[in-house]
Design a protein around this nucleic acid. Sequence first.
DNA 1: CGCACGATTTGATGCGCATCAAGAACGCCT
DNA 2: AGGCGTTCTTGATGCGCATCAAATCGTGCG
Lengths: 292, 292
Amino acid sequence: MDSEGEIYGPWQPPSAPRDAARGSGRREPAELKGPQVACSECALFALCLPVGVGEADLALLERVIKRRRLLRRGEVVFRQGERFHSVYAVKSGSLKTYVPVDGAGAQVTGFHLPGELLALDAVGAGCYQYTASALETASLCEVPFDRLEELGMLVPNVQRQMLRVMSGQIRQDLLMQVLHCKKTAEARLAAFLLDLSARFARRGFAAAEFGLSMSRGDIGNYLGLAKETVIRMLRRFEDRGLVSMARKRLRIRDLYGLERLAGMRAGELRLFETARPGATAASAARSPRRRT
Amino acid sequence: MDSEGEIYGPWQPPSAPRDAARGSGRREPAELKGPQVACSECALFALCLPVGVGEADLALLERVIKRRRLLRRGEVVFRQGERFHSVYAVKSGSLKTYVPVDGAGAQVTGFHLPGELLALDAVGAGCYQYTASALETASLCEVPFDRLEELGMLVPNVQRQMLRVMSGQIRQDLLMQVLHCKKTAEARLAAFLLDLSARFARRGFAAAEFGLSMSRGDIGNYLGLAKETVIRMLRRFEDRGLVSMARKRLRIRDLYGLERLAGMRAGELRLFETARPGATAASAARSPRRRT
DNA sequence: CGCACGATTTGATGCGCATCAAGAACGCCT
DNA sequence: AGGCGTTCTTGATGCGCATCAAATCGTGCG
């Protein structure tokens, strides 16, 4: 399916993190530690899934991939404002995306796990809307958008699938808005963990145990909380037996308890590219104290 | 440009607000008071703009419009979860969209002014993602999506334009996230007013004076604030001479002052369908006290 | 191996804004 | 006009969470 783990670093913007030294010794790439998705599990593949799951489609897909890129922690894939040319699929590792914000630091806008698509929303803008950087060693598939468009000519449904993916993004943003406006710190963090869990599960990884590759600060930034609050809430969860944590490793012990805290079921977050005609949302009422 | 103000109410879901009585007397429709956009100013028209602005295109556009719908305050256009069939363009009046939320009320997800498009993001989901209802007497153009798709076949760029509009929505959601995570109540409200102003201006209405058709409660809900806070902030703005208010009418007196409060320039909100290759965002530093 | 710097924790303190509780000012209907 | 429900306003109070400060841990490095 893949082979040849080409180590590209050709277009390397001035961001090299301190640990980007080439021959650092420890653990060479090629065999990547973390979870890694097969092409058939990747969001990119879903772009042409509707036409059938045959070998031919896989071949079509392979043809649009320009190259793979291997990133180390902190390396930047693209920056906000750069001219848009490619979308990316995460093959292994994880990334965060963020936008610089006025005077104070940045706003983390999302985390991206193996099998997920990156930057499709830049299509309509002509330039990337945010900066993407690796949270850990990661590999990506780059897909030049013009090739994807060509593919769209051959396979009419690809266009529709792109709309679908973007629509899924908007749906996700809606949920984030609810989270920010109506939920306490506790509920936000619970929802965040459930979201991660569901996304791992979706690609075939363990839903109950996974690594948090981002820092507490990043989580807090993303959720609109101070990092101290994130820490305190995590501790609270652990004290209540909802999760157990060792360093950056998290294990969910009481899924239902978390769902109760979050005020929503796990599946309700990130409904990505799944049309459910009749579903009208939650029922579970629970919310400590937050607005009317 | 239009004529025949057909008063349709055929598909009227069980929501009739208390003031929906038919022959209530006062002020018949047909002549609408508020701002009203010409077809050439409408977001729908922008869908095929790139092919040229000729008469032929206008004719094409007219062909896809199924009918106009006239709504009274509180009437619902579509509900979350209903099967998606049409997108809508606001011709006059204004709407709000919202999603029901677990135990407590709803989350207002947006307001929609004349010339703006509604529900395009439902394309990828197959069902509407939120409920839309009129804030005041309003008229809409309904466009069945299958007809829009047909148009897409005739005019290839329509597809691209749809991506563009959705991408603009995602960009807007990103800004909302920053607003919620990093800004104080004061900054949020200032940004909200600037956003409204820019949107009115964009369609050719007065940027400095307009009506707030939504209630303070709706504004607060949308921004993640209590309605009391909205009121207090508005008063504060007025006391400082930034705006002046009479009932639901608002006049912006000091645009620059508001921008300083919001911590961003007016144009930075809602950059809708405008690609700006090199723009990297703000510079104005200002934020009273909010996160790191 | 021990140094240094960043990430993680924990506690103390205070501010921003939600919440509660009335009252005032509409808009709407009879 | 007069009544009434809804929205808007204003003040008092308290809680949630940001902020500040400082210790500890982890990790890459010389």
